[in-house]
Each structure stands twice: as structure tokens, then as C-alpha cells.
């Protein structure tokens, strides 16, 4: 830690003013202005280093109303990128109402364009889907989110979709994939997922170099009003257990998460997956790219419709 002794206020590594944030994984500390500069540089380094997008390309930013996605939207604006927000109203009770309110306020105060999809109006509010199908909430939610990210990007002509996944998200996901040796998911875990089909947009994660703590600090110092509450469906999710384990490792061995994720991207991934991923075909129902005849989202809608009508879905009756 830069200039930190017990009982002594740490100083900013860059300007030597009193620090307000300590970054143990980097053995450093920053004042407000220098931290914000550091954060912007990390994001710019991620965008440039991974060739995520150019300043000419319109970027669709997936915004939930949480700290990560709003911090991402904020920093991309400051860096001068062309951004439009996309908020998915998931239909998870008061949590979704609060999320939409915070997102709309953020966009309104900054004069930023915001697109929205209302899962309830589309007939698949997550609360209903989970109640009807008994699928894990995070699984159903993820399937629906990915579908709408692709659909909206395609319909509005966005070549790239940016999400607020941070270093902790990537580390937890990587740990989960390694524990299961899920080679398919490992192959697809990347800060940039190139479109595997002409209809797909490029998926990018400009915050992948920054920890969840750092995005929270950024959001606080930039006075971003975000949703502090957690999704009620997240309790017990395995990803949270992985994060907890990784956080304990990080406390004992600062830099562990960063090495785990960044070295996977830099060295291991290319060694493991030299070949191209199998290209998807097209879903016979919605027309979006899919690795199956009927994509996961349309299968989910089939299941919901069948449950509402009190009959077993085709996929279940045929098995």
C-alpha cells in the first residue's frame, strides 16, 4: 500500500494528496480525481487492448440500474463514445420498479437515449416464468436477457452490445466453469465475443479489468444514484458463493482475481481453444441465431405457454 502505516492516512500514489480509496490488489491508493482518472484509463485500456469498438460505432449499453452498468454508461459517455442505454424491465416486483426508476432518472438527468423492453408486457415477466416453469430464476432471466439484447441490437442496427460485467463477475464465472470443466462455456468466456452469426452484435465487457469494489467506488465518487438492493432471486446463487471464496483468497493474496482472469484471457484461453467455435444456424421460430432448431428463448416461451394452458410442452412430451 502506498505510504500507508498503521494509523497514518494513506496518500495518493499519483499526486500525494490524502487518499480516499485503497486498492489492495494494486498495492496503491488514490485521491478522488486520480482514482477517476485511473478508472477511465482502465476502461480505455480494455476497449483499445481488446479492440472492442471504435468512437464511430454506436454502442448499445445494457443498463440494469445497478452500480456496474450505470458506471459503465457514465464512463463511456465521459470517454466520448456514442451510447444508447437498453433497460430490460424484468418483472421482478418492487426490485424491477426501483431499477427502472433509477435507470430512467440517470438517462433523463444526462440527456441520454434509453430503450426499454417490458417483460411483463411481452408476457414473460420473470416472476411468472419462474412460477410456471420452476426453472432457476437466473437461468430463465439470462436466457431472456440475451435474446432481447440480440433482438434490440439487430432491430436498431447496433453492431456492439456492452455489458457491465466486472472482474469479480468474470472471476466467479471462470471459477464455476473450471470447477465443472465446462469447455463450451470456457470457450465462450471472453471480454469480447465476436459475432458468430451475421445477425448477432459483438458482445463486450469494458469493465472486465476493474473489480466490483472499484466500480462501486467509481459510482459513489461520481454521485451515481444506483440500486443498492440485490435482486431477490440472487440469494443462494452459486456465483455468489464463488465470489465469496475468491474474495477470501484475494484478502490473503492480493491480485489473485486479476491474475486468475487476465491470465486466462491472455494465455490459457488461446491454448485451450485454438479452433473456431461452431457457428449457429437460425431459430425456426424467432429467426434469431441459435445453436438449436428452436432457440432457448423460444423454448422457454413454449414452456410458459404450455403451462398456462395446462398441457405439457412438446419438448417434454416427446422425451
Amino acid at each position: 500500500m502506498s505510504a500507508t502505516r498503521p494509523g497514518h492516512k494513506p496518500k495518493c500514489k499519483r499526486c500525494r494528496n490524502p487518499a480516499v480509496v485503497q486498492l489492495h490488489s494494486h498495492h496503491t491508493a488514490f485521491c478522488r480525481d486520480c482514482f477517476l482518472l485511473y478508472f477511465q484509463r482502465q476502461v480505455q485500456r480494455a476497449i483499445d487492448g481488446e479492440r472492442m469498438f471504435s468512437r464511430e460505432e454506436p454502442v448499445l449499453v445494457a443498463v440494469s440500474g445497478g452500480k456496474d452498468s450505470l458506471a459503465l454508461w457514465d464512463v463511456l459517455q465521459l470517454l466520448g463514445y456514442r451510447t444508447t442505454g437498453l433497460h430490460l424491465n424484468l418483472g421482478i416486483g418492487a426490485y424491477s420498479v426501483l431499477s427502472r426508476t433509477k435507470t430512467e432518472a440517470f438517462a433523463r438527468e444526462r440527456g441520454l437515449p434509453l430503450l426499454q423492453v417490458d417483460f411483463g408486457a411481452e408476457g414473460h415477466a420473470i416472476a411468472d416464468v419462474v412460477g410456471l416453469t420452476r426453472r432457476p430464476a437466473c437461468s430463465a432471466c439470462g436466457t431472456a436477457k440475451r435474446h432481447h439484447f440480440d433482438r434490440i441490437a439487430m432491430e436498431h442496427g447496433f453492431p456492439v452490445v456492452a455489458t457491465g460485467h466486472n472482474l469479480d463477475d468474470e472471476a466467479a464465472r471462470l471459477l464455476g466453469n473450471v470447477l465443472r470443466w465446462d469447455m463450451n462455456y470456457l470457450a465462450r468466456q471472453s471480454p469480447v465475443l465476436a459475432p458468430s452469426h451475421e445477425k448477432f452484435a459483438r458482445k463486450v465487457k469494458p469493465l472486465f479489468r476493474l473489480s466490483e469494489y472499484e466500480t462501486a467506488v467509481y459510482a459513489f465518487l461520481r454521485r451515481i444514484d444506483y440500486v443498492i438492493e440485490e435482486c431477490p432471486n440472487a440469494a443462494g446463487a452459486s456465483q455468489l458463493l464463488y465470489k465469496d471464496v475468491l474474495q477470501r483468497l484475494e484478502a490473503e493474496m492480493p491480485g489473485t482475481k486479476q491474475n486468475f482472469v487476465l491470465e486466462f484471457y491472455r494465455r490459457a484461453r488461446s491454448q485451450l481453444f485454438a479452433g473456431n467455435l461452431e457457428a449457429p444456424t437460425t431459430c425456426s421460430r424467432c429467426g434469431l441465431p441459435s445453436h438449436r432448431p428452436v432457440c432457448r428463448f423460444c423454448s422457454l416461451l413454449d414452456e410458459v405457454a404450455a403451462k398456462r394452458q395446462g398441457v405439457r410442452p412438446l419438448a417434454q412430451t416427446s422425451s
Binding site: T4, P6, G7, H8, K9, P10, A19, V20, V21, Q22, A29, K67, D168, A172, E212, Y213, T215, A216, V217, F220, L221, I228, E230, A234, A235, A237, L240, L241, Y242, K243, D244, L246, Q247
Partner: peptide, 30 residues
């Protein structure tokens, strides 16, 4: 995040009996 009077505190800052301190969890559930 450890916050007092709308300012972030470092681990070296001293908190007093009269303070109200907000401790805001940043790692989702973990």
C-alpha cells in the same frame, strides 16, 4: 464502502462514538 457524512473512509481513518457510519456492501451477496 465505508461512508461517513457522505465521504468515503479508508481503513486508516478513525471513527468516533458520535459518528453515524454507513457500510455499503459492494460484492453482490458475496
Amino acid at each position: 464502502l465505508v461512508i461517513r457524512d457522505d465521504e468515503m473512509l479508508t481503513t486508516e481513518d478513525v471513527v468516533n462514538d458520535s459518528d453515524t457510519v454507513e457500510i455499503r456492501r459492494v460484492i453482490s451477496g458475496g
